[in-house]
Design a protein around this nucleic acid. Structure first.
Lengths: 224, 224
DNA sequence: CGCATAGTTCGTTCCTCATCGAAGCGTTCT
DNA sequence: AGAACGCTTCGATGAGGAACGAACTATGCG
């Protein structure tokens, strides 16, 4: 009955679980591809595409086509602010969850994020690689350092194998609120971790469980 | 897939047009009854009751029972802030409507708000009544002034006829962002306006159209 | 008590919209 | 060119939920 801006239209866009997950994933500021968002939301690609279309039409998203990839990002700080506000209310009225406590401890420590490792372990690893100057952090971007090629070759990872995708990318970690390493290099490292059987994936979950010796090996290689 | 506060749940509560209208109506800060909100949202009472139940369960509303009335209000400033944020986005991305222009001119000038008059005419009327000290504004409340009884009696309105409901109440006008007069007195005045045929109601709309002589009469009685 | 008003609950109907498989485009790599 | 990949469009299916009428509870009035 009332006139005025169509707040129901906007709110209902955020009101779908799949779309909410996508928006949440984009809150890190990094633009993501449709496939990544589909995984993030837990829906198929066609479904994700449909959702993205609606979010675009609603003006909540922008898109940048790069080759055959389409990078979706939040339309602006105002949209991000709105999501923050909604999150605040949801937190306030939501089930009084125990303080940052170990809701799902394993997930906080290490988990899969698309095709690479996320969680405390992943954040620590990126920190260490940057500290050792193997990787160079430059604002939003991450680049290979001078010793990167030899450093990773020693571990059995060729940083130049799949040049199609960006080799490195920063990806914001929801549990730690800091970045971890994505891109082909991040994917290769996760692949190695699983191939060496340092860790196994929890069934039907994104959690990654390290075995005690596996953890030692990982720390020796990436955190020393 | 992502953990975290259930933002979709909250957003979907706001995402229904009926509920959005209710929340919008409550943004004025005045608590309203279920019937008033049903009218505001343009739905039947049972439907409104169901919506209110959901908003309560979601923690967005509080309720205060007074006799057989139940006054619903926003749960707090955080909720109001969230609605503001959503409204901001909706305004920004919405159809670039012409500046406050006469979207529906008649509605801005005068319309029905539940059982009383709203719009520019109503706001002007309340201003004038307060200026003449017939009514006394005291913060949120409006009370009868010393000359109120005689003043309204002269027009043929008995301010003491229906003591069940508050005689006066402030109601925020969405188009002008200022208050107009609600309560039994507000209702009685609207009744008189229609009874005297100073104005007629637009079919299927809340607009109230004054005839030229009717407008003069109204201005003589209430705006002089 | 009986009647009126305010609100909720129940049950049914109906429609929107999320979902996915299959197929269709455009890009990139070999 | 052909194959692989990223993404969108189309069509069919299905479930959730918004809507209202009717019946029920609760409060107030005479």
């Amino acid at each position: 009955m009332r006139e005025g801006p169509d707040i129901a239209r906007i709110a209902s866009l955020v009101g779908d679980p799949a779309r909410a997950n996508m928006l949440n994933a984009l809150m890190g500021g990094t633009a993501l591809t449709a496939s990544e968002l589909a995984l993030e939301a837990g829906v198929s690609l066609p479904t994700a595409s449909s959702h993205l279309g609606k979010l675009m039409e609603g003006g909540l998203l922008t898109v940048a086509s790069q080759g055959r990839h389409r990078y979706y990002g939040l339309a602006g700080p105002q949209v991000a602010g709105m999501i923050e506000a909604i999150t605040g209310v949801a937190e306030a009225v939501g089930p009084k969850r125990v303080r940052p406590g170990p809701r799902d401890g394993a997930m906080r420590v290490a988990r899969v994020c698309y095709d690479h490792l996320a969680g405390e372990q992943a954040v620590a690893m990126l920190d260490r690689l940057v500290a050792k100057n193997v990787l160079v952090r430059d604002e939003q971007e991450i680049r290979l350092g001078p010793s990167a090629a030899s450093h990773f070759a020693a571990i059995g990872i060729d940083v130049y194998t799949k040049p199609r995708r960006p080799v490195c990318r920063a990806c914001l970690d929801w549990s730690v609120r800091r970045s971890h390493l994505a891109g082909t290099l991040g994917a290769a490292i996760l692949e190695k971790i699983l191939a060496e059987k340092w860790a196994r994936r929890e069934k039907d979950s994104r959690a990654v469980i390290f075995s005690p010796p596996g953890r030692q090996a990982f720390e020796r290689v990436f955190l020393s």
